[in-house]
Structures are given as C-alpha cells and as structure tokens.
Simulated scan of single mutants.
Amino acid sequence: MTHNILFEPYQLNQNMTLKNRIVMAPMNRSMADDNFIPTSAMADYYARRADTGLIITESLMISTTAQGYPNTPAIYSPEQVEGWKAVTEKVHRNGGKIFAQIWHTGRVSHPIYLNGEKPLAPSAVPLKGRVPRTADLQYETPRAMTSEEIKKIISDFTHAAANAKKAGFDGVEIHAANGYLLDQFLHWDTNRRTDQWGGTPENMSRILFEVIRKVKKEIGHVGVRLSPTAYLHLDHDERDIQVSDYVLKHLNEYGLAYVHTGMFEDNYQPHLNATVTQYIKRLYKGTVIACGGYSAETGGKALIDGDADLVAIGRPLIANPDYVIKVRQQLPLVSYDVEMLNQLF
C-alpha cells in the first residue's frame, strides 16, 4: 500500500525527528475568545490530533493590525502566550509536536477589525469582493505601508516568534502564502512599489528574508509556507514566476525546517510545468511539505515519487481526530462536512 510510507519516522533536522510523515495542516477555525486567547476546547482539539508527526496551528495574529477575520487567535500579548501554553502542554503530553503559524492578513481585512483604520498593504490596491462572515461588507482600498511600518511588521513577526518559544511551541511557520501580507509583497498584482521593497524579485522578497533572519534568532525551528501561483486573494501575473524562482533558490541558504505548499488543491500548473509542490521541490532542496487535497493514498504516492518529504492533511483531520489510527488500520474515514466547522471535536 502506498500509504505505508506515511508511518515512517522522518528526521526533520539533527534536533527533531517526527514519528510519522503526516502533518496536520493549518486551518483557521475562528474560535478564540474575544481577547484572541485560545480556549480549553482549542487545547483539546489540537491534543486529540497529536498522533500526527507534526501539528501546524491555525494562523496566529502577530499584532493588533493583523486581523482579518473574527475571533482568530493571536500571540502578541502575555495573556495569549499563557493560553497557548495550555495548548502546547496538552499536545506534548500526548506525544505530539506543534508549530505555531504566524501571520498578518494585510489587505485581506476591513476597518471593522482595525478600530476604523485602513488595512496595511504593500500598495494601495483594493481586494474585490465581500468580507467573509459579514452580511454585505465589501473590501476597501488598503493603505500603502511606509518603510518604517514595514520594519515594524518585521519586528512584530520577531516578537511573535519569541512569544511562541515562551508558549512552548516546537517551532514556527511563517505564513507567506494565500494572498496574505507577506505573499502580497511577492506578487506584482499587489506590490507596485518602486522603493527597496518592490520592483525586482530581490526587493519584493526582502521583507520575507528579513522576517526569516530575525525569527530564526528567536526560535530554532522555522518553516515557511508559500503560494508561488497567485490563486487566492491575488490576480496572476506572468512575472510572478521570476519572484518565486528567486525566493525558492535563496531559501536554500537559510537552514529552514521546511517549505510548505500553500494550496487548497495541489494541481498541475501549466506555467510551472508541474504541480505547485513539484515546482517547489525542484528548486528548494530541503524538506518540502505537500499540501492541497491529498488523501493517504495520493500523499503516500507523492512521498514515494520524491515529490515531497511530508504530506499535510486538512479537512479529513477535522472530521477524524483519530485519522492516523484509522489510516494505519485501514478503517473507514468519516466524510468531511462543512457543518463540522461550527464546533471543535
């Protein structure tokens, strides 16, 4: 069976070995309390999935300017750190490992979340469409960040990583995918700057590499999530491939724990001549996590074929807290249903 490879241990680096190659994908649940502190139900939710080789949390806001959805958890205050300690302790008691995904939504936000202020973005380019989980609010034109504000965001990512270490996380994942702030810098549609933060692949990726450098000084294990193709919250530009080529090649110099595919469906992309994960693996020589609609069988095949080293599972893990046991024992899985998003179990 192709999925047997999923249960092999994997040495992430010389200091960390995962008990299997199944990763819990980050999935935003919007169930923190009104101070963005994780609840006891969230701690139980993650602890029930500690059989996976690695858990990557839902996105954690790095500052008060980072919010784009209701009740998403954060990690910038001491109270939030204490809340996450309860989560990591339960996961570790159950034998699991857990990374915090840290993010900023950038223009994928609205003044209702920002005390009436405009969202921050590389350039003042509006996102079209309705704000999720609202009746009829539309996205508005964001405010182009000053160079000082960009440096502040880098500092906020650094502070979040330091807090993640205090909270007991085994590492962090820098969210630079899915059309959120760091990803907005990496695409021509949303980055129209002509200063040191835009205009060339080197300048457009400068913020990401600055974040990586600073974060690695705070916590040892650092992964990065990327969406080299503009499929969410962004419009495609043929020049984007030059940026992602540059980013992936240079990520080899940073001693990362992994690079993680940020896709809902990891399909063949004609302009990449590969699936997104295959494209990443072609340029990045370290550990690659495949993500995007994989099953145990297709994930196992990706590992056997050398397309990836680990495979992230999303919705099936929402529906099946005991996913690892069921797949190992070839038991039927509960089918995911959107109604499952209304509760944590």
Score class of each variant (00 low, 15 high):
I153F: 06
T229H: 15
F185C: 08
Q242F: 13
P201L: 07
R192Y: 01
L120D: 00
P122N: 04
Y139Q: 00
T190V: 01
L186F: 06
H187T: 01
N203I: 01
E218Y: 04
Q138E: 15
A124S: 14
D245E: 15
E218C: 08
E148K: 15
W197T: 10
P142G: 03
P122Q: 00
G179E: 00
R225L: 06
H233Y: 12
Y180F: 15
V131W: 04
M204K: 15
F185R: 10
F209L: 10
E202H: 09
A177L: 10
K165Y: 12
A161S: 12
E149F: 07
I150D: 05
H187W: 01
G220S: 14
T158M: 11
F169V: 11
K217P: 01
R225A: 10
F209C: 06
K152P: 03
H221I: 11
I174D: 05
E140F: 03
Y231F: 14
R133I: 05
V215T: 10
G129T: 04
R213V: 10
D170L: 14
H187P: 04
R213A: 14
Y180P: 02
D235M: 07
E148G: 12
V222T: 11
Q242D: 13
P142V: 00
D245H: 15
R192S: 02
R239H: 14
G198C: 04
R213Q: 13
L127E: 00
Q196I: 10
A160R: 00
P228A: 11
K217Y: 04
G220V: 08
L127I: 15
L137N: 06
P201S: 08
F209S: 08
I219Y: 07
Q138P: 01
D170I: 08
T200M: 11
V224E: 01
E202P: 08
K152Q: 13
M145K: 05
A177G: 10
N178W: 02
A124R: 08
P142K: 04
V222H: 09
T190N: 00
I174E: 02
F169I: 14
K166M: 08
P119C: 05
H221E: 15
I219V: 15
A167N: 10
N203C: 06
R130M: 12
V172M: 08
A124T: 09
A162H: 07
D136V: 03
L181C: 05
S155K: 13
L127A: 01
A161H: 05
E210Q: 15
I174H: 00
A230H: 00
G171Y: 04
E218P: 03
V131I: 09
H175P: 01
A135G: 05
M204R: 15
D235I: 00
A121I: 02
